[in-house]
Design a protein around this nucleic acid. Structure first.
Lengths: 232, 232
DNA sequence: TTTGTGCATTATGTCGTACATATAAAACTC
DNA sequence: GAGTTTTATATGTACGACATAATGCACAAA
């Protein structure tokens, strides 16, 4: 079958896209070629419709998509202007754990592990003394918690969330917030087992101590060990 | 002024959202509450319009947004069904470097550094012997390249791209592809200086050697040093 | 000159209808 | 029963009308 298909390899794929699809691409092209910057305004809907020879309906649907991507903003009477998209906001809406397929969820989970290990440098270089005090406050009664060996998700989020906050990287921070429902889903759905105590484990408290030495390399290794039982 | 405003803190923000905005949220809510899964179909446009007391136009615009987010798929006669969104595809369209504001670009660049350092474990654990051979092939004439100390972006992408590929994490891989235009923009726009040779530098060739030892910790440190001149 | 009010203008937002198009499912042919 | 045609139906596109909100202008009041 595949053999047979190969002999038709010159056939081009039929155009299955709707007018809205085409207009959308056209507009994106327009943005890029015209080197439009944030704040620039684009022609009004009726002008675009006229220019591109389609109905206002189609133009509106296309613009609506661009708006969904966060690329434009429209106001009555004022018209449509270019906007810098909030990429995390867009993701936030489309990431609904129970709808995302499992392989993507797994991918995202791995991505998080990589991020937390890799961001060690930023945490170490940007943590203020106040930050460290705050972390100490968070971990101060860790003994009691680690004693019963319970995996307290709220506590985890509080600690790791603070680390993200320290990076002073807004995108990264938002990224983490947006991933929280994913963790919850993964853990509660049994897609991944809850971690249990293990050999090379580094506690939150130990992590803070490492952070205090201001040695990025050490901190990174510590973080890796801390996450040990999440790696398979 | 700000002091005065604070005393009105109980005032709630006026609802500035359009019907389409509301219907969109309503639909998202519907998806979550009804625990809709991939493949489930939702009521047809006219039914929704009737149910929610708005025109088909509004329903269509809302659905169009969900489609843009990749959450639904529509076919004539068949109707609308839930889909697992391709989160990287959505980002791909909205990431137009010269439109994104500079702070976000910087954030994204940092994010990449963290990822590449943090994904060391996955690279080491998943690299096949064939992968390593391929890497060796890529770096085989590195001497000549590093000799003139030129920062060859194509070569960089080829090597690092292969590393992403090795992780066997599709989301991560797509994520990298999607970030490429960002790198190009950052480098070509002078937003960040092109790296120059530096002390702790680890070459691609050395990285492959580290990979061959299958020691994740070593490889991670090597990668961190390799990226040294990208960290500020 | 400044401040407030009202009105006209204008571009997007919403609505309803009509028809085009694709296609799943039923009806039909052999 | 397999293949073909017809029919019904849900989305896609188009158009016209009006609603709504923001803008700017004109004019009046302080």
């Amino acid at each position: 079958m595949m053999e047979k298909l190969r002999s038709f390899s010159t056939l081009s794929a039929i155009d299955n896209s709707s007018m809205v699809d085409k207009v959308e691409l056209s507009l994106l092209d327009f943005f890029i070629n015209k080197q439009l910057k944030v704040g620039d305004s684009i022609p009004k809907e009726l002008e675009l419709a006229d220019l591109m020879g389609v109905s206002r309906t189609v133009i509106r649907e296309s613009l609506n998509r661009l708006r969904t991507m966060g690329l434009i903003e429209t106001k009555k009477k004022k018209g449509t202007v270019i906007k810098s998209p909030d990429i995390t906001l867009i993701l936030q809406k489309s990431i609904i754990p129970h709808i995302l397929d499992h392989s993507t969820l797994r991918d995202i989970f791995e991505l998080r592990l990589a991020l937390e290990v890799g961001m060690a440098d930023f945490v170490v270089s940007k943590a203020t003394n106040e930050d460290i005090l705050e972390l100490l406050e968070i971990v101060k009664d860790e003994e009691s918690q680690s004693a019963n060996a319970l995996f307290d998700i709220d506590y985890e989020i509080k600690f790791h969330g603070k680390l993200y906050e320290i990076t002073a990287n807004d995108t990264l921070r938002e990224f983490q917030k947006l991933l929280l429902p994913v963790y919850n889903y993964i853990y509660s759905s049994g897609l991944l087992n809850l971690p249990t105590a293990q050999k090379k484990f580094t506690s939150h408290k130990q992590l803070v101590e490492l952070l205090q030495t201001r040695d990025a390399e050490q901190f990174r290794v510590g973080m890796r060990h801390h996450l040990e039982n999440h790696f398979l």
